[in-house]
């Protein structure tokens, strides 16, 4: 679409009083709601120990408060993670996108966490504790020019709620079924980038979980092919690079031993 085209005023829509941002870029009166509201969080070594008005402790969503060690640990972890902003419409997302630093320009060891409102980016959160994550690690030098687009497409699949094929292919019988996705993360490190998709649930390997495993694998395939743009059978691992891999948060804790990875 050429920029000129969008200036056209749709007379019919105007007659009905509905003005979108496409016909009225500054004077629109409707906006596109997202399936869920989202919160962007950030951390890097530079944010450590900074005490800001926005420090999340005060802005924590209602996570069940520290009765158990898990949430307490999450509080410690969250102290250095700064809430950037929450948004609930497509229009607000792009306003944010157009004014924030892209991953390729972030310092080393920085992370953006884009999570559904009410879910903190910690595996201890109720919504995450039974889940896991798809992730891919990409060597920095080779992917510096790609990572911004990859992160953008990852965010768009998240906020557009198109990661979970169970939701998009009409298989779900109930209206507004709960999405498997809780959040997405981009991490910068000295040698590589990592992109992750966090899910509410993780298959445990028992036959009863076959359906869930298939649903999780479909999320991973969508991530690899439609979002990151790789052919389905493409091998990605190499120096500093991994395949698109799924690991439950429980298995991540085991640090390698007995960890059952899914790969797409």
């Amino acid at each position: 679409t050429e920029p000129g085209e969008i200036q056209e005023v749709d007379m019919q829509a105007q007659a009905e009083g509905i003005r979108t941002v496409f016909s009225h870029p500054t004077n629109f009166n409707v906006k596109h709601p997202l399936y869920s509201s989202w919160t962007l969080w950030f951390d890097s070594p530079a944010t450590k120990g900074r005490n800001l008005p926005q420090t999340p402790i005060s802005s924590f969503p209602q996570t069940p408060v520290p009765q158990t060690p898990g949430p307490a640990a999450a509080m410690g972890w969250m102290e250095d993670i700064k809430k950037v902003i929450s948004f609930e419409s497509v229009e607000e997302f792009w306003g944010l996108y157009n004014h924030i630093v892209p991953p390729s320009q972030l310092p080393q060891k920085a992370n953006y966490y884009l999570f559904k409102e009410g879910i903190i980016p910690a595996w201890e959160d109720e919504a995450n504790k039974l889940g896991g994550k798809w992730s891919i690690q990409l060597p920095k030098e080779k992917n510096r020019s790609q990572v911004d687009k990859m992160w953008l497409y990852t965010m768009l699949a998240a906020i557009g709620e198109t990661f979970d094929p169970h939701l998009t292919n009409g298989e779900a019988s109930e209206p507004n079924p709960q999405s498997l996705i809780t959040g997405v993360i981009v991490s910068t490190r000295p040698q590589f980038y990592r992109l992750s998709i966090w899910t509410r649930l993780a298959p445990s390997g028992v036959p009863e979980d076959d359906q869930l495993r298939e649903r999780i694998e479909a999320v991973g395939r969508h991530f690899k092919t439609s979002v990151l743009g790789y052919p389905e059978s493409h091998k990605l691992s190499g120096p500093l690079a991994t395949e698109v891999e799924f690991l439950s948060h429980k298995d991540s804790e085991k640090k390698g031993k007995a960890a059952k990875k899914l790969i797409v």
Partner: peptide, 21 residues
Amino acid sequence: GRFRYDRDFLMQFMHICREKP
């Protein structure tokens, strides 16, 4: 009002929604 949006649709907003939140 719980809608899903494909990437092609969403990308059309990129150069229009420039206002800093």
